[in-house]
Design a protein around this nucleic acid. Sequence first.
DNA 1: AGGCCCAGATGACGCCCCGTCACGATTTCA
DNA 2: TGAAATCGTGACGGGGCGTCATCTGGGCCT
Lengths: 213, 213
Amino acid sequence: MSNIAYFPVRGPAEDNRPGKRERTKVANRQAILDAARAVFGELGYEAATVRDIIRRTGLASGTFYNYYKSKEEVFDALADDGARRFRPLLRTEFEKAVDFESFLRGAVRAYFDFLAAEHESWRINRPAGEVFPHARATPEIQAVFDEVHAAFAKVLEHDHAPAVDLDYFAAACIAVAREVGDKMLERRPVDVDGAADFAVRMILGGLPALPRP
Amino acid sequence: MSNIAYFPVRGPAEDNRPGKRERTKVANRQAILDAARAVFGELGYEAATVRDIIRRTGLASGTFYNYYKSKEEVFDALADDGARRFRPLLRTEFEKAVDFESFLRGAVRAYFDFLAAEHESWRINRPAGEVFPHARATPEIQAVFDEVHAAFAKVLEHDHAPAVDLDYFAAACIAVAREVGDKMLERRPVDVDGAADFAVRMILGGLPALPRP
DNA sequence: AGGCCCAGATGACGCCCCGTCACGATTTCA
DNA sequence: TGAAATCGTGACGGGGCGTCATCTGGGCCT
């Protein structure tokens, strides 16, 4: 053996790759998240257990609790993840928008596209009838709601639109988008355009403005 | 003591009161339901256990399972109970209605009144943030949805209104009513009139028709 | 009234899942 | 290289779940 010891040389391009500890940590966290998505998809939320999730990763049961406190927390992390990925799309629509109508149309369209895409990674083999607790108000989801609320306020003000009860209005819009979005996913083929058109007209003009099929 | 023994005489008005067996059965079922309502109110749905419920009744744990299969089933029974009590109110509104607008107004108003009344018996001491699985599609709740759907179809046809995508439309209306109703309950004082007015205008005319506060 | 029968109340039991913790392996740092 | 820190591990106690053998008392007959 050379008596010149080997030391990893860090060149000018500093190797800022985290150490092994850190790498396995993020890998484990991600593995648990992936396993959880799969298990929730196959067994449904209620039936899934922490051990079902951790078993799929090959890790020990105790390890799960180094990353998440409970099944609920993992689920919330998945939900947060979705919300976190959606937020930039929403922001883009806000920046593109020139008035309330264009913002609404863009945002609904973005949401429905997002829904359709996510749909694939979830509905693998879900027991019929079970409903995921979509409504969980995780921090990131709440942030999305707040952002919608704020965007509505700004855009409506810019339009010199008459003041409305924003709390009710934003809630109603989100409700319409959610429900029509859900129904959209149940139809074959999935018609994002049609559903988005419906939701936008519903919000902008109510019953008289709806498309006639 | 008189030597003329006392025998309860069953007159022509036959005593068809059920026997003691049957009476304790309905009493137990009701006791479990009441206890469940209280426990769900105090601990929230997730934290509540079958034993919390049965303990409050003084019955043995096994007895619970003579009446309901699980915590879920008891919760669904409570939800069904609410839906079953609401259905006649909805039907009354349908019979009173002369056109779509009057039906919608009556139905929304009835629902919000119902919500405000039920509110009392539930929000006793609920842990903040937890959301009940309102969305559970129990048979009775599904029946209410179907009835709204059917009523919409009949009333709109009677109005000679242009055909719309009833599935989307009914879902959107229910979503608006639910969400605005929820928000209504969070405000002090609870303003049923204002909330109903908002929801009805939202559905009938969308954003431009909303009241300006 | 007395006796038989069975619906249904009872609670102990075994099962499974939960969350913890003491231990050991591996990485990091001096 | 050795000490210290970090984190994976799986056994364990705790507790809720749903069942079942047993017991109790109401219904019904003679």
